[in-house]
Write a protein that binds this DNA or RNA. Structure first.
Lengths: 174, 174
DNA sequence: AACATATAGTATGGCACCTTATTATCGTCA
DNA sequence: TGACGATAATAAGGTGCCATACTATATGTT
């Protein structure tokens, strides 16, 4: 269990050598990023045995309960990725037998993506397990602690948003 | 500025519908992940104008000050990625004129990666800016607050490590 | 009806990361 | 000495993400 990522350790050492910035702040930031990275990796590791990635899992539970299916466009909107990315994920899900593509009836440009039995079964089984796993990460936290943590995160986010006025980020398209 | 990622919103809704896990916990986790994601994206956006990614930037400052250069193997160890990944990053850095590959003298399997003038200049300029940017994320935080936050993160990490005994993660190879 | 424009899905190519070969070189030990 | 296993770098192929460009279909305008 590494407390910090290798690259961040290196950066920290160099920053100490140069004394350009308060290293306590750097350390705090890297611990945050390391934890998030660890969560992501753990998530991926839990889904991998089912031949799923996080992105694919999201599509699965988005489709679950939609007996009519959803179009790739809708999936993209709800999952928060581009349509092109959806195409790739669907290719994998179709190959592995989780979903099927049905060509649309009224609008022939549209496609309806529907779960197969395997897809439905997998989505159903995994969702609860997944949600419980995530919730368990905050086991032992009281409401007050969660809200304190949240306050910290908000403040960091504010610093993130107001700070870099020099970088004209193209404002994630809607 | 989105507070939470689209996919997490969707997951949260479904979890509320099903009432399988305390959604406050889920929400807290997603806020954490969203912030980390936002930081990563911001980092990428700051480096992109220089034709650098975070991975490439790390290599650059690892090489900075190493007048003898480093081998891809050493770079991989210090950056915490595989040698194969390093090869790809070096290809890009070489193409863009930041580094040069020098074939080794004593051991002819080895290659010495050295910075070009452009590489040295870029590394030098960017490092301070980058470190200051990261430190600025924790502007306004006192030592006590940083340590409270850190305590929270450690607790989450402990939950992460102890929880999933069922997932036999292959224990990140050294 | 005809043309312009918008939309749906996908292909293509790029990036950063991975795992698993493959090739060249090194060091050792029989 | 020469064969063997370790090591260095890379190649090949896979994933998930992106942006851009293309095709087919739909729709609105005149």
């Amino acid at each position: 269990m590494k407390l910090m990522e290798q690259k961040h350790l290196a950066l920290l050492e160099e920053a100490e050598r140069r004394a350009v910035a308060p290293t306590d702040n750097l350390r705090a930031c890297f611990e945050l990023l390391a934890l998030a990275g660890a969560i992501d990796r753990d998530c991926a590791a839990r889904l991998a045995p089912h031949r799923l990635s996080e992105g694919k899992f999201v599509l699965l539970f988005l489709l679950h309960g939609q007996s009519e299916g959803l179009s790739p466009h809708e999936l993209a909107d709800r999952a928060g990725v581009t349509r092109a990315t959806i195409t790739g994920l669907l290719d994998g899900l179709e190959r592995d037998g989780f979903i099927a593509r049905r060509s649309g009836l009224e609008d022939r440009r549209k496609i309806a993506v529907v779960l197969t039995d395997l897809g439905r079964k997998t989505a159903h089984e995994l969702f609860d397990e997944h949600a419980k796993w995530i919730a368990a990460l905050f086991a032992g936290f009281g409401a007050d602690e969660r809200s304190t943590l949240n306050g910290f995160l908000q403040r960091i986010r504010r610093n993130l948003d107001t700070g870099p006025a020099d970088t004209p980020r193209p404002e994630t398209r809607t």
